[in-house]
Nucleic acid binder design. Sequence first.
RNA 1: GGAAGCGUGCCGGAGCGGCCGAACGGAACAGUCUUGAAAACUGUCGUAGUUAAUAGCUACCGUGGGUUCAAAUCCCACCGCUUCCUCCA
Length: 422
Amino acid sequence: MIDLNLLRENPDAIKASQRARGNDESIVDEAVKADATWRKALQEYESLRAEQNAAAKQVGAASKEDRPALIQAGQLLAERVKAALEIANAAEVHLNDVIWKIENVVVDGVPTGGEENFVVLKEVGTKPTFDFEPRDHVALGELLDIIDIERGVKVSGSRFYFLKGWGARLELALMNMALDLAAKNDFTALVTPTLVRPEVMAGTGFLGAHSDEIYYLPADELYLTGTSEVALAGYHRDEIIDLSKGPLRYAGWSTCYRREAGSAGRDTRGILRVHQFNKLEMFSYINPADAEQEHLKLLELEEQMLQACELAYRVIDTAAGDLGSSAARKYDSEAWVPSQQTYRELTSSSNCTTFQARRLNVRFRDENGKTQTAATLNGTLATTRWLVAILETHQQADGSVRIPAALRPYLGGQEFIPVVKA
RNA sequence: GGAAGCGUGCCGGAGCGGCCGAACGGAACAGUCUUGAAAACUGUCGUAGUUAAUAGCUACCGUGGGUUCAAAUCCCACCGCUUCCUCCA
């Protein structure tokens, strides 16, 4: 949710953001109008209510004889109050309807345009070259007997899989390495719930246009989360958190569930795009003044992970039109996937400024003791998808896969994943 | 799943339908005293909306409805917690 004060003081800034995103600008004018209407209605109601409160007090103090007349007057007043309240409530509902449609105001410097208008900030590492015909991760998974897609489909349907043997261990090793890195950098580990209430899901901004991406359990009114970001953002909902000793940082591990409703036919091969995977997510609660700096820190840690996995990658600054509704800026890092001869997203880090926290009512006390809405940021430190890039990048001619040195301590020192099928 | 009880401010804990945004205690903060500290004493001590306003007004006593001139206080529903029983790990 955007800041109402910004709407009142500088609606043009919001319009500019809407333009950059390719969103409707006129909704800002509508919001300004709705806000004014609501405030007027609210004042109307409040002054009537004040009158009523005073009148009710008189009844209490009045003598037996005077009471009937006062009560009768009060009855009339009560009706007017009720009517005024209804008007004010309706105005507030309308205001919220409009205001919730406005997406977060983008940070200065975010490239304008749509999905293809991203700016490449850097390219790191050398893309692997092979003096043999490289296999894709599906072939490698079969050869090494570490990814069983066939049985995943048998048990759960398309876009499901089993990780097996070294595959399962590799994923856990990756998660553990990421967790260690996070812990070293002041992130508290959290294993989070993956079923959340509607308010939390809505608060994080996932129930907007893309709500059909989300699994929902109507019998229990719970949503399955597509990322632990949801639980991590809800963690401090309705709290005044203490940021006086610095930001609150969490590293949330969870399984993630995505319906992939809009991507039928896309990435159908392998485990690049699946309904269920695991992820370690960084999440920071911070003073908004420090949010951009924190964003760079998250990116830096993501890069450390990519480098530890010895992957070639690039970092992009996502264009405004491709940002999620909560994000004011988003950096993605994409690793080179040899079988596709292209970069694929492995991490995504968003600065949500105060947008998410305002919806979830997460505040802190500033230097003056005043409560202020906190800023929230999130970033990926590891996901199951990383296995795709790792396996394909480090494959050998015989199909075995070299394990990056940084991961070996988490795998009992193992250096290669051996071929088990001829 | 069945039964009973309970949900009040940072915590504990009062609260006859009007005088309750809420007693009292603790914690915290500030000050007095003290060489310093403790103790004692004094004071401050919720959040939000509206407003030019740290004035006023409004709202909030689990949540949502209702009754009433007036609700923390009565009624209904829901949610949560505790205990007992049952069940299952």
